[in-house]
């Protein structure tokens, strides 16, 4: 008998079930189909501006930096300024996201944009988040050619563009949007929920920023 059959048989024997019970099967099928929320904290239940404000407050509380620009056309200049202020090189890596490609890069001719996945030699990465979660100041990033996952982790500094319209109050709203986008029961290879820059408290419980992921996380909220 395979390991699978042994373990499943042991589970069923322990529970005193056969696995054929109609009531159990429909309970499971229903739950998987409905994906109902359990309890959603009040904290995130605000209007659009309220969500943007809470997102910012929570992200800054975990040492991310947040700036807001009026329109996506302002993003290249915001990036150039941030890199200058942080003494970072005027070069970054980004994926093939059309939202990045469509920006007026000619306004900042000094910026160099490399494309594709990161091999660990980039100092700065740029990504587009599909959503923000106001409740905890969390970014939601999905893998694919548009935004390779390596860019979220390997560069020293990570800049993330996020549309103000995409800031949800809670995670549950984001899951629902993902189902609409990728299909029920499906998910991209990697989904990253990112709440602040990387850190470790493994040495005497002292919190230090910049472990294996980026040392700095800069979020540009658009709109």
């Amino acid at each position: 008998m395979s390991g699978r059959d042994v373990v499943l048989r042991k589970v069923r024997r322990a529970l005193g079930v056969t696995g054929e019970e109609a009531a159990r099967r429909s309970a499971v099928a229903e739950r998987l189909k409905k994906s109902e929320p359990n309890i959603i904290p009040e904290r995130g239940k605000r209007d659009r501006e309220g969500r943007v404000a809470l997102f910012r407050e929570m992200a800054e509380a975990v040492s991310a930096t947040v700036e807001r620009v009026a329109a996506s056309d302002d993003v290249p200049t915001a990036i150039a300024r941030y890199l200058r202020e942080q003494n970072l090189p005027a070069a970054f890596r980004a994926g093939a996201d059309p939202a990045i490609g469509a920006l007026p890069w000619d306004r900042e001719p000094n910026l160099t944009r490399l494309s594709g996945a990161s091999d660990g030699r980039d100092t700065v990465g740029l990504s587009c988040a599909i959503a923000g979660v106001a409740e905890s100041g969390t970014l939601v990033l999905v893998s694919g050619p548009d935004n390779p996952t390596t860019i979220n982790f390997l560069p020293d500094a990570h800049i993330v563009m996020l549309s103000a319209d995409d800031i949800a109050g809670d995670y549950e709203t984001v899951w629902q949007r993902m189902r609409e986008r990728f299909g029920a029961g499906k998910a991209p290879r990697t989904v990253n929920l990112v709440t602040g820059p990387s850190r470790s408290a493994d040495i005497e419980q002292t919190l230090i920023l910049g472990a294996h992921g980026p040392r700095a996380l800069h979020i540009i909220v658009v709109g």
Partner: peptide
């Protein structure tokens, strides 16, 4: 409130994924 990274992995990389 949340750990810094909550990462969801589903299957291997997809055909046109540049990493994974």
């Amino acid at each position: 409130d949340m750990s810094v990274y909550t990462t969801l992995s589903t299957g291997p990389r997809r055909p046109d994924d540049p990493d994974g």
